[in-house]
Design a protein around this nucleic acid. Structure first.
Lengths: 208, 208
DNA sequence: TCCAGGGTTGAGCAGTCGCTCAACCCTGCG
DNA sequence: CGCAGGGTTGAGCGACTGCTCAACCCTGGA
């Protein structure tokens, strides 16, 4: 019966969400899971192990619907709008609270860092692949590093997730502003040879 | 004698940096400060209070050299390059570890959230003012919300700070990619009436 | 019917947490 | 000199931490 195991994973996710990493202990997890605290160690060996599994599980669940819709995205602006809608319409879909909290905890725990990195790439990799797809054939492809850009996009999302706790309105405003910025980039892409020549010239002399 | 008080603040900052929020207790802070643990409560009343002061102090110290150089920035690209250099040349200048960790902890503690928000604005506000200055007169000013954009920029920095622990190379790549993206935006700004008309048209039909 | 074994339980261990407190040192003022 | 008071100390409180363990329930096979 994997029932208790699953309840513990769900309990861990729920506990991190509601009380942060600092408020997440074996007993706290077991309580929200409605289960005896000794079962944490019977099923996972340690709280660390459970947290790792929980982080991966939570991230996988959040990434899934996002990755599906990524396939339908056909330009940069749609990509960002997708993120913005996910963030706005349903926090349980778009948010990355668990991952953000785990990243903070992983900062001082090498074992957690490895598993958290894996979860992080569940976000980075699909975004990077989508960027690769969108930018092939575009003059942007020559100058923009999709790997770096994907990391920047994910870092932004994670940072905004942390803002939510202390300044709820700020996250949405930031996403809106970004959405408009991306529209500008696309304009460059639309403008034809004159703009592209200017762009290349500018980048040549300005890029380090 | 404000000596002990200051040592405790420095100790708190150092402890958060080295061991994260989860590894930061009154005893741990006192130990790295070389001071008796009871002094935490004598000088600050509670660990919460000390953490709040430490977060504000650390953030102020990091913001100061950044804000100085902000005055010399004359376009968007220089702004991002400044952030990139600060991040690269000296972690103790550019990084925002303490703030990132406090934001994570504040997620589940309303009292911490207030002070952390204040520290957060030590970053957001100068960036927003600089963006306001850079964009006055530019056609970008009409479409880009500087408040939102400033939050997006800071969120990106904070997210990248968390990346550093689990994927050290990723942060720099992300900053490089962003720097190139901003160069594109400036190209739009340089291009004259044709591009601006296209830009306005695109934004009109695409902005929700 | 018995028994083996996965799953579960509450008690409890050693250690740490935030925090308090009486006792102390040291400096400066009357 | 005495003594008040800011600053400091180590001990210790109750609560909580990760984790262990013997005892238990329950189901399935012999």
């Amino acid at each position: 019966m994997g029932d208790t195991r699953q309840r513990l994973i769900d309990g861990a996710i729920e506990t991190i969400r509601r009380h942060g990493i600092t408020g997440t202990s074996a007993r706290a997890i077991a309580t929200t899971a409605g289960v005896n605290q000794a079962l944490v160690f019977y099923h996972f060996g340690s709280v660390h192990e459970l947290l790792e599994v929980a982080c991966l599980t939570a991230t996988e669940a959040r990434v899934a619907p996002f990755a599906e819709r990524l396939a339908e995205v056909s330009d940069l602006r749609q990509l960002l709008d997708l993120g913005r809608r996910l963030h706005a319409e349903e926090r349980s879909l778009g948010n990355v609270t668990v991952l953000a909290q785990m990243l903070a905890a992983a900062q001082s725990d090498a074992r957690l860092a490895k598993a958290t990195s894996a979860a992080l790439h569940l976000w980075i990799d699909p975004v990077e692949r989508t960027l690769d797809r969108l930018l092939t054939g575009s003059p942007l492809a020559a100058v923009v590093d999709t790997a770096g850009l994907a990391r920047a996009v994910c870092a932004g999302f994670i940072g905004l997730e942390l803002f939510e706790g202390v300044e709820p309105a700020g996250a949405q405003a930031a996403l809106d502003a970004l959405s408009r910025l991306v529209a500008l980039v696309e304009v460059v892409d639309d403008l034809g040879p004159v703009a592209r020549r200017a762009l290349r010239g500018k980048l040549r002399k300005a890029t380090p």
